[in-house]
Design a protein around this nucleic acid. Structure first.
Lengths: 190, 190
DNA sequence: TCGAACTCTGACCGATCGGTCAGTACGATG
DNA sequence: CATCGTACTGACCGATCGGTCAGAGTTCGA
């Protein structure tokens, strides 16, 4: 693995664990056993380093969105595939997900964060049916945010580790339930 | 309103919008039209300021948890009341919720964040039934995290504003559905 | 063998950070 | 009037931040 890739990986882990603003270039350099100047040789700035570290996750999510039917009768059928793909991308890039979830507020004017926001919007609008009610919209948001948050959080969780495949299934099921189930049937339970 | 209270409010809003590490004492002082020294006169450190700003939300959530039955047959009946109380506290302290959701990783060794984590654990363990499966545990986590995330995010959201009472109802319904519904019935939908 | 390109480094820079401190303004109290 | 506590401020401090730069070590093709 090249020095550049090593830095990239260490930076992503640091950003996920202590936040972008809470991570210094010097710390990242120490993590990989090089110098701050070396980091700044491979990446022209700290922000460029963040950008490069997030890119693989952005690319994977972009590919997912690009494969979607944008409208028409196929849209509803695409929901399960999208939910599955979404969870898979999230699980494959959990560190980047953690960075996005926790830093998107403080870094709202960083370009790569803005691009990630646009991707999430595209996914959410596909997961809900046409002319969505506030109810369904909110339910889908809860599902997307909840799954992303837990996955990002699971990095340093000392909690009992559930088998990843089991987690994946639970995430997909719950997401689909929030997207597709008729919530009105639950009213009587209140 | 006293200067101290003004600082407290401005600090909470700043922390929620740009993060704890992304907010300087100087900026908070500028927000309220005073000096950095004045802020440090009322609060002995930046961390003490965070602590004081989060305290009302911590207190409200503590009161909610303290009123819970810890075990026994009453526990299941307490779930709807807890979910309702949880959502109400979250909505009443959305800025503090935003700080907690986004900063808890980077600030994991700050005492007030640790206390908030313990509260969330207490609530989660009440919302799930005895001997919870990984499935229910994960579903509840998705619900709690999703609702908290959206509420914290809604602060600067320029999206269409749904009526707060409607949001409250949707949150509570969805949370209860994730806690109580039999997810197995959804299997056939896949 | 020469030099160009690539990788990497330590010294250094201005800015900003959280925090300290001496001192000032002022209303209340004796 | 003198004094004391409260509220507040500007000057200042050491540390650390992101970033620049000149140069050293190495590799490799001409």
């Amino acid at each position: 693995m090249t020095t550049r890739d090593t830095i990239l990986q260490a930076a992503l882990e640091r950003f996920a664990r202590t936040g972008y603003l809470g991570s210094s270039i010097q710390q990242i350099a120490d993590d990989v056993g090089t110098s701050k100047s070396s980091v700044l040789y491979h990446f022209e700035s700290k922000e460029a380093l963040l950008e490069a570290a997030m890119q693989p996750a952005i690319d994977a999510m972009s590919a997912l969105v690009a494969a979607l039917p944008h409208a028409g009768p196929d849209k509803l059928e695409a929901v399960p595939a999208l939910a599955t793909g979404f969870v898979d991308v999230l699980m494959a890039h959990s560190a980047a997900v953690s960075v996005f979830v926790t830093q998107r507020g403080a870094l709202r004017d960083v370009p790569v964060i803005g691009r990630a926001n646009a991707l999430v919007d595209a996914i959410a609008s596909t997961l809900v049916q046409e002319a969505p009610s506030a109810r369904v919209l909110t339910r889908v948001s809860i599902g997307l945010a909840g799954v992303a948050f837990i996955l990002g959080d699971a990095l340093d969780d000392d909690r009992e580790h559930v088998h990843p495949a089991e987690m994946r299934e639970i995430f997909i099921d719950t997401l689909l339930e929030l997207c597709l189930a008729q919530p009105e049937s639950l009213e009587s339970a209140r």
